[in-house]
Amino acid sequence: MPDIVLQDGSIKQDEWVVVSRPEDGDSLNPPNQKALIPVDLWLAGYERYAGREDIGVWFDSHQEPETLGDKVNELTVIAVNFPKFTDGRGYSIGRLLRERMGYQNELRAIGDVLLDQLQFMKRCGFDTYALRPDKDIQKAARCLGFFSQGYQAATDTDTPLFRRRAG
């Protein structure tokens, strides 16, 4: 199994498998282990998946987190796919889940996740990061701690730096 980076920069083995969207006509069959399934398929099969701590969801960058509604905190893990490093919609999904929807559990970045994005993902509320396989996971801790302070308010602090300094 691959490794995953935690928000503090530590590394652990990833227990979750990302289940791809099935082809047209095929049904979704999550494996008998912790699985992240497409969010729309989780909603469509809500009666089957509700209350299962071994099933989480993943959002593609074009999907809206509001589709979860009041079910958001029923999920142990929500992953957000970054299909390519230039697609920044995943940052917005992370902030919406944390700030507007009050998501309290694990928020994971998956897909084309690069080292230089980790600090920004952290500020948007992501807890764990599945790096692209060709990246050196041992450098992740340094990248997560590169900046000691952020200027703007974000999910990690609701007060901008100029107000923190004035206080």
Rank of each mutant, 00 (worst) to 15 (best):
W42T: 00
L115Y: 07
Q149F: 13
S148V: 10
F126C: 13
D14L: 14
I37K: 08
Q33I: 01
M101G: 07
C143Y: 15
R108N: 08
K12F: 04
V72Q: 00
T157M: 09
L161R: 12
V72H: 05
T128M: 08
L96G: 11
Q117E: 03
A154K: 07
E99F: 03
A154F: 07
R95L: 07
Q152D: 15
S20P: 12
D156S: 12
T128S: 15
S20A: 15
R132T: 15
R163E: 15
E64I: 08
R48F: 02
F147D: 04
S148G: 14
D24I: 11
P22K: 04
E74P: 04
G167E: 12
A109G: 14
Y151D: 14
S61D: 08
A35Q: 00
P83I: 02
D136K: 15
L131W: 14
Y129M: 05
V39N: 03
R132G: 05
K12T: 14
F85H: 10
G88Y: 12
R142C: 07
G9A: 07
F59P: 08
G111V: 13
I37E: 09
Q63N: 04
S61T: 06
G88S: 10
I78Y: 02
T157W: 12
P30S: 05
M101I: 06
D112I: 07
R123I: 01
G150V: 15
P22N: 02
V113T: 09
Q117H: 14
A140I: 09
A109Y: 09
D87Q: 05
